[in-house]
């Protein structure tokens, strides 16, 4: 009873590993399905969602919060799905949302660039230089995405429980190592870790409900009580309170709401 997230670069064979792992454990294997699910649930174009999860935010995004909105929808869909447990997720951004959940095994799969270039050349029928350019650009976008939005460096190994380099290891050996690792008790779902996942899932549902009106809203919830922080002027307090209450009321599982207005943020 666990969840495995696999973070990978393009053509690092992460998808193959995820699928074999899911088959071995008889778990659900998810990636693009979440994007489709979020797209349907929140009625947003799939391509916009994919771009929001992949491309680093532009200066315009910073002001319009377009990316934040899409990410909020995706995060809500992903966490809602993960609450079911027994899932292998290989895809965009999952590891960033699950950092605090202890029973989630967070993996990073890396492969040699040369090997990835070969794969890309074969698949796309392009030159080595073109393939290299595409892969480097892709990696840089993902790195910037995480760094810009959450201040997290996806190339930092401390971000993961385990990083596996597919050089000497082949796919089956890698799967075997992961299977052995998830046997450890620290990766088993406990009532406490499940409760934590339920809480962050509720946070995500509330943030998704608020994101059109308040894209920078942050939520901390505990056992159905939600503490919502909203950027806004204190003179608008009443209006914000009633609007937040109206929007959050629709979210299942919310028993009580506390709204905190954040009128400013000053850095040292």
């Amino acid at each position: 009873m666990t969840i495995v997230t696999i973070s990978r670069g393009t053509y690092s064979r992460g998808k193959e590993i995820a699928e074999k792992l899911a088959a071995a454990l008889n778990y659900e294997c998810l990636s693009r399905e979440i994007v489709i699910e979020a797209s349907k649930e929140f009625n947003i174009p799939e391509i916009k969602l994919v771009r929001a999860l992949h491309d680093a935010p532009s200066i315009f995004d910073r002001f319009s919060y377009g990316k934040e909105r899409y990410i909020a929808f995706f995060r809500a869909a992903l966490l809602k799905h993960l609450q079911r447990d027994n899932i292998i997720y290989h895809g965009l951004a999952g590891h960033a949302f699950l950092q605090d959940i202890p029973h989630v095994l967070k993996l990073r799969i890396i492969a040699d660039l040369d090997h990835r270039i070969q794969e890309e050349m074969k698949r796309e029928d392009i030159s080595a230089d073109q393939a290299r350019q595409i892969l480097v650009k892709d990696d840089t976008e993902r790195h910037k995405w995480s760094l810009t939005l959450y201040g997290l460096d996806i190339w930092n190994p401390s971000f993961y429980d385990m990083t596996l380099h597919l050089d000497n290891l082949n796919v089956d050996e890698t799967v075997s190592i992961i299977l052995h690792t998830i046997e450890h008790s620290c990766f088993k779902t406990t009532p406490q870790s499940q409760a934590k996942l339920d809480d962050i899932s509720l946070n995500a549902q509330i943030e998704a409900a608020l994101t059109n009106e308040y894209p920078k809203a942050t939520v901390e919830s505990r056992n159905g009580t939600a503490y919502v922080s909203i950027r806004g002027s204190l003179i608008d307090e009443k209006n914000i309170f009633s609007k937040v209450n109206r929007l959050v009321k629709k979210v299942a599982g919310v028993e009580k709401i506390h709204v905190n207005i954040v009128p400013h943020f000053i850095e040292d």
Binding site: Y214, R231, F265
Partner: peptide
């Protein structure tokens, strides 16, 4: 620069 990061479309 201390409040620069707080700026967004809403502000």
């Amino acid at each position: 620069l201390r409040w620069w990061n707080f700026i967004g479309w809403d502000t």
